[in-house]
């Protein structure tokens, strides 16, 4: 029996329930949201009027929205780069066969990822407290009082503080994916390279990184998409403040919807979706092409 005849034993209508559920709960709402973004739909209007691209024009002329876009991109690229760099580093370290207690370290590093972001947000609100927080208290204790800051209320560093919190939370997840990738690399390749006289750096550059390319792809793409959609962490830590220093797309969208400006909020949501596609898709294609080349 050929593979194709095996597949034909499952009729296409098996797909129908999935298509229906997906269609009603995702496709139709997504398509209608495109329409609503072109209307003046708000909490006070009983009749919805088509207004073309007015919502989009209004959004891009809004200083706050432009600041929000900038913050979202800064947040997304910073967290993606840092958590992948640290995740890879930790994965390589914790993949050393002779390292004692590596399972314990892996568990400890992965642990923050299983804690709800809202809990982490509250936890770090306490940690970052300028007078009583453990971070500033520790810095003062070890003689680094000059480094003690008002981490969440100083507009110059508030975004950095939220980025670091998310890096702390998600590095373990990246590390686990890299670990899985590392463990799939055949040891014979390293042995062969060692016989050929390759040092650690060359083995990393010519064996580890090329064979980790699929893990890098999945980690980078997931991180980029996830961080562009960041919401809870920012809401709990800073609520977008001080001022607009940490306002991101989803907190902006939430406040627009809360004001009852549904058309405008939907338009902002469409922009976020397009942003994710515009950035996520080329990155994915680039990394996949690189996988093939390597």
């Amino acid at each position: 029996m050929t593979i194709s005849s095996q597949r034909s034993r499952y009729p296409n209508w098996f797909l129908l329930p999935t298509i229906l559920v997906f269609g009603f709960l995702f496709v139709i709402p997504t398509l209608t949201s495109f329409y609503y973004s072109l209307t003046d739909w708000n909490i006070n209007r009983r009749v919805i009027t088509f207004i073309g691209f007015d919502n989009f024009i209004e959004l891009f002329s809004d200083i706050k929205f432009r600041a929000t876009l900038g913050n979202t991109l800064t947040y997304a690229f910073s967290v993606t780069f840092t958590r992948n760099f640290l995740g890879l580093l930790l994965a390589i370290l914790l993949n050393i066969a002779t390292l004692r207690g590596k399972n314990l370290f892996r568990t400890i590093i992965f642990l923050p990822y299983v804690i709800a972001p809202v809990v982490i947000g509250y936890l770090f609100t306490a940690i970052y407290n300028p007078s009583q927080g453990i971070l500033n208290q520790s810095l003062r204790t070890i003689g680094l009082a000059f480094l003690a800051k008002d981490w969440l209320n100083d507009p110059n560093i508030a975004l950095f503080s939220t980025i670091m919190t998310d890096v702390w939370r998600t590095t373990g997840f990246s590390m686990v994916i890299y670990l899985a990738g590392l463990q799939a690399i055949p040891q014979e390749l390293y042995e062969s390279a060692a016989i050929d006289g390759a040092n650690g750096v060359r083995r990393l550059a010519h064996i580890t990184l090329p064979l980790l390319a699929p893990s890098i792809t999945i980690n980078v793409v997931l991180a980029l998409i996830g961080t562009m959609k960041v919401f809870v962490m920012i809401l709990v830590l800073t609520n977008g403040g001080p001022g607009y220093a940490t306002e991101v797309m989803n907190t902006y969208i939430m406040s627009t919807f809360s004001l009852g400006l549904y058309g405008s909020g939907t338009a902002a949501n469409i922009i976020l979706s397009l942003l994710i596609i515009t950035i996520g898709l080329p990155v994915l294609l680039l990394l996949r092409r690189r996988e093939v080349e390597l």
Partner: peptide, 22 residues
């Protein structure tokens, strides 16, 4: 609308005109 946030931002930037426009 959003007046507290506008003022919070004005105190950060000192930009009175932007606050008024917003």
């Amino acid at each position: 609308t959003d007046f507290p946030k506008i003022l919070q931002n004005m105190l950060i930037t000192g930009d009175v005109n932007t606050a008024l426009n917003l």
